[in-house]
Structures are given as C-alpha cells and as structure tokens.
Design a protein around this nucleic acid. Structure first.
Lengths: 197, 197
DNA sequence: CGAAAAATTGAAGCGCTTCAATCTTAGTGG
DNA sequence: CCACTAAGATTGAAGCGCTTCAATTTTTCG
C-alpha cells in the first residue's frame, strides 16, 4: 500500500529507495470504508493524508447544520487541514471517505526528515503550498464573481473525472449551491445542447 | 524608508544589522500616490510589496467590469500575487494604492538570500504561507456559508482599524456585496443597536 | 425485488442586486 | 474660509438568482 506513495514521492524528489526505507518508519497506512472519518471538527490534524486508492473529502458544517465541502482528494492527492496541522489548532474540518479508501498518513516527523534528506523534496513541498494558495485564491475569486453556471463549468473543466465519480450533491456543496440549483443548471446546459468535453 | 522593513524583518528573524545591509541591495523602495498601480493584470508579479506606510489592495476585474477585492495590506503587511510570483505566470490581479503609500519591493533574490542567511527567516516565510492558506480557507468558508451580515461582522472584528480607513464600497467589494447591500446591513445592525467594539 | 439515496421538477419565497434618486462628506480652487 | 464639485453613502422600488419546501422520478445496491 506504500508503493503508490513511494512512487509519488520519488517522482517529486530525489529520495532513494534506501532513504525512503529509513523514513518510512514515520508513515502509517490505513484502509477505511466509505463514510468513515480520518479527522473530525475539534481534533488537531496530526497528519497529511495521501490517497493511494479511493477518494476523500474535507468539509465544514455551519450553524444551520449545512455541509460545505472544501476539498476533494482522489488518488495521488494529499489532503490535510494545513491550519490545524501547522499551528496545532483544533480543526474546523471533517475529513471522511467518499469511497472505500486506502491512505498513507504522514506526520510532522516524516516531512521534517524528508526535507532534511532532500532539498528537492523540500522544494516540492514549498511548491505544493503555493499551488494550494493559487487554488484557494481562484476559488475565492469564483465565489465572489461567478454565477452558478460559470462555477460548475469551471469545475467540470478542472476535474472531469471527479465530476463522474462524485454524487451531484457533493459537487453542489463544493460550488456553494443547493443540489436543486445544480440540477437546474445542468438542465439549462443540456437544453442549450452543452456536452462535457 | 527601509527602517520599518528592517524592524519588521529583524522582529521575525535573527538577521543582524550587517547581514541586513548585505541583502538590502536586493531591495527597492518606492513611494506612490493614491490610485497608482504596482501591478496590473497580465504582468508577472516580480516582487513582494511590503507596506511601510499607507495601504495597498489587490483585486480582480470580472467580465462585467466589476472589481472584486482580494486583499488589503496596511502598514507592516506584505502583499503579492503568490501564484504569479512563484510560478512566473501573468497575474490575474491588480494591486494599487488606497492611500499614498511608501513601500519596499522584495524580489526573489532577496528572499533566497535571506533564507540562506537565516533559518529563522526561512521558518517565518514558511509560516507566512500557512497563515495565508488559513486566511484564504476561512474566506472560502465564509463565502460558502455565511450571510452578508455575518461576513461583515467577521470583517470588523478581524480588521477594526481597516474598517475605519477604508471606504465602505471597498469593504463591500471584499465581502462580495454591493455597496448598497452593505449599507443596508449596517442600517439593520444600527437598528438593533449594534456598536462596533 | 424492494428500500434508501440521489436527482429532478414545480411553486413560492428570500436575500441580495440593480437602477435611480437623494443626501452627506471630503477635497479643491477662488 | 466658503463655494463648488466629485465621491461616497443612503434609501426606495423592482427584479433576478438561488433557496426552500414538497412531491415525484430515477438510480443504486443489498
């Protein structure tokens, strides 16, 4: 189960097999069923979660009990509440499995050691933070200015394969819409003869 | 004009006077008038802008010509389009001066050298990225779930002094509202006898 | 097959926007 | 220092986009 992760990390760094073996002591693998949690609101997020198979999501629940999905993580993605992880604060987020999922948990020590071993990995990590910022900023911008339809079109363009794997109500939640609204957006697109890709 | 920045950086690192002198060659100071730009849509953002006096803002303009303010930066803040800066892509953003502003421009070389000189500075930089992510994520969450009133209350709690310095329409733009809506929110708060602080 | 989850549809409603007019405040030149 | 102008803020009325609620249909899966 570590194999996928090993490939991933070697693709993004110059870490050797021996080096990986050393630091793999800091890793834990885990398999969870659809619906199970790896993080709950109020807990400190002590790990980054690498998805080797399956699909995770992070979300908040507001005062009215409504879910708002923050992120999806399919294979080869890492999901984590970086605020909670870095600042050791209780997390606002829940992270659970959308599908049965095999994951690898990386703790602080793993990251630290990997960064010490490999400046390439350190740079990769740094780049990942910037990608995250880019992504969030784009999302803020869409939420500030784009209509329901524009947001949906952006989503299916950016994540075509997720569009197929996810129930529609989750996409709606990610986009800040009700399932009903998204359904109507899709109906309107179909009427105008829109076909994804 | 560099003094404020020197204080700032020494407060957040162990960089000595001599070290600062060395790397200050990579810095440029600049004074601009209200309304002048330091970055325009389509340009690559080659600097981080430290505000030593005054107030900058970053914003996008959508297809309908509407502004959406992404960030404000008063004294001792740094503003930058990190995506553009890091990935060397043309920026989506405009950055201009809300007030007459004195600023310091840090280029890539400055950051690199400062990180090499001081691991404390490197850590500070790392932390800044995480703060940025935390902030953006909170904002996404508010935009997904909170009403106009909740967003405004959050803003004045977080940035009481900005609330006084900024024209209301800019706060509205930051919150994803029209000026008229914000005005009505404030009226309603006043009716319910709400007093800031 | 049967039950539960998801998606769709319609009707009514709400929150925020839009547009237009008025009032207030701030900045500038006589 | 006041008069004038422009920018900002407020208010009202109408409208639009998305939500809510409720009912129905479709899909999924044990």
């Amino acid at each position: 189960m570590l194999d996928n992760f090993k490939n991933y990390i070697q693709n993004h760094s110059d870490i050797t097999d021996e080096q990986f073996l050393e630091i793999s002591h800091y890793l834990k693998s885990k398999s969870i069923k659809k619906g199970e949690f790896v993080l709950r609101h109020g807990e400190v997020c002590g790990y980054s979660f690498f998805v080797s198979k399956g699909l995770l999501r992070s979300y908040t629940i507001d005062e009215q009990g409504k879910e708002h999905i923050i992120q999806f993580a399919p294979e080869d993605w890492i999901i984590v509440d970086r605020s909670s992880y870095f600042f050791n604060e209780p997390s606002e987020l829940f992270i659970d499995a959308v599908e049965d999922t095999a994951l690898v948990m990386l703790n602080e020590d793993f990251i630290t050691h990997a960064c010490n071993i490999s400046t390439v990995y350190r740079a990769f990590n740094h780049k990942a933070l910037h990608s995250h910022i880019r992504h969030l900023q784009k999302r803020v911008n869409l939420l500030l200015g784009a209509t329901a339809e524009q947001r949906y079109l952006d989503f299916i363009k950016l994540y075509p394969e997720l569009t197929l794997r996810l129930p529609q109500w989750m996409i709606a939640s990610y986009l800040g819409l009700t399932p009903e609204s998204l359904s109507r957006v899709r109906k309107e697109l179909a009427r105008r003869n829109f076909k994804p890709h």
